[in-house]
Design a protein around this nucleic acid. Structure first.
Lengths: 245, 245
DNA sequence: CGATATCTTGAGGAATCTCAATACTAGTGG
DNA sequence: CCACTAGTATTGAGATTCCTCAAGATATCG
């Protein structure tokens, strides 16, 4: 029995060694879903895995774009800076998300870890070769790019036209929906990012984020819990606020 | 002589009839560049051309996404609305631009003409078939989606972190660069959109757009000309303002 | 040339920002 | 285990940008 388990464990480990991608926990979420075993094997051949502590840079804006990444755990933020230091976070990425779309010669933004993060790293040249070889992969990546684009358009509406309260509620709903998609808790949601990060994502200041959260807390639609968790007490109310109803 | 010209004209017309795409003036700008004659012919087979007057809707947010479009002349705006009517324009498209990226079941935004516009219409099912058949086309479309994504990220930085003056200057530079790419005048630039459209693109009000333009005019960095043209008198100055220097 | 829409300008107000002080939290070392 | 520190979050007061409302000027179109 103990032996069986040890064997099973060894088999899994050796399988992972031969093809870590086939044992990947987030495969269904990402570009790697819908790949055939052969494609997956080829992808595994070019994949390097990487662990990064929180608060570290994965790559910087303007650096040569040598690689793409897939987040397998943790949270990463992407941001652009103005010369005087004003910052706009263009997205938070979690397990299954792809980093490096907008494949250009240089990275158009900085990627920095919000929590400890595990990544798969794909050298760019090699993955471009695979894309030519496997249209299915390209198709999948194109589809991801389209989703990103739709999300970016939603974010433009938020940044250009929503009030602080609407922005915060939209943000909480986004986190909730994404947690659901990953099989995590949708309702007490885990919010790993700082007020400053939230502010730079929503086009606000930390003070306004803090005040608005206090206001939502006071009016009873959310409550703050231990460990950076937020309970969405009145989901319908939050939804109405987010949409400006 | 007159005969020769008539002949030439007739030949061109008949060529266009056989394969309008190969005679297309904006082909080099768009997804249709880098296609082989065979691919171009197949694309032409599924293409319908369409002319729309200014101020008309090409498609509406939420409608089934039956087709993609390529703008061949004129300007189109894409926008999303909040329930109370607040509007965010997510992009202005011109000759060579592709409409309908973010290929989902329904359109995520409304597309409306700003000026009289000519479009190529590609039924969605048919173009999806072509994409499977011709990886080159898919590659090209993927690359366009990536450019859009990079532009969307720039726009998020603008909406979230730039002042009204910086927004207007960024917008003028964007128009200038795009005009240049299309072989139009980069310096007295043609600005076909209304103040309200500019406002909804930049996350401002018409009044603020108007005031800011007046201010730029008064300080001598731009001047307004006949026919909705704007001269960028101090290009370096405009660039510095746009980047917040 | 009149009607209508668009643009500009003004005055006052509101949302959000800035600056500043205080409270909280988590990690560190005694 | 507690005190200390550094970072982060909250709260307050005042300033500022931009918005709202309103009126007048200009442009557009039949």
């Amino acid at each position: 029995m103990a032996q069986t388990e040890a064997e099973r464990s060894r088999d899994k480990a050796s399988l992972a060694e031969i093809n870590p991608c086939s044992a990947c926990a987030v495969r269904t979420l990402t570009v790697c879903s819908a790949l055939e075993p052969e494609e997956l094997r080829r992808l595994a051949d070019i994949t390097q895995t990487q662990r990064i502590e929180s608060g570290h840079t994965v790559f910087g804006e303007g650096e040569p774009a040598d690689a793409l990444f897939n987040v397998t755990s943790g949270t990463v933020k992407l941001y652009k800076l103005l010369p005087d230091g004003r910052r706009q976070i263009t997205g938070f990425l979690g397990a299954g998300d792809f980093v490096g779309l907008a494949l250009n010669e240089t990275y158009a933004y900085t990627a920095e870890t919000v929590t400890a993060t595990a990544l798969c790293r794909f050298p760019r040249r090699k993955i471009e070769g695979l894309l030519d070889e496997f249209p299915r992969m390209q198709r999948r990546l194109f589809s991801l790019a389209n989703n990103e684009l739709a999300a970016a358009q939603d974010q433009m509406l938020l940044l250009g036209r929503k009030t602080a309260k609407e922005k915060i509620c939209s943000f909480l709903l986004l986190l909730s929906q994404r947690a659901g998609r990953r099989g995590h808790s949708e309702n007490p949601i885990f919010v790993p990012m700082s007020r400053a990060d939230i502010a730079d994502y929503l086009g606000l200041t930390t003070e306004t984020v803090s005040r608005t959260i206090t206001q939502l807390k006071t009016s009873g639609v959310i409550s703050l819990m231990e460990g950076n968790k937020v309970r969405l007490c009145d989901l319908d109310g939050i939804y109405d606020i987010a949409e400006g109803c």
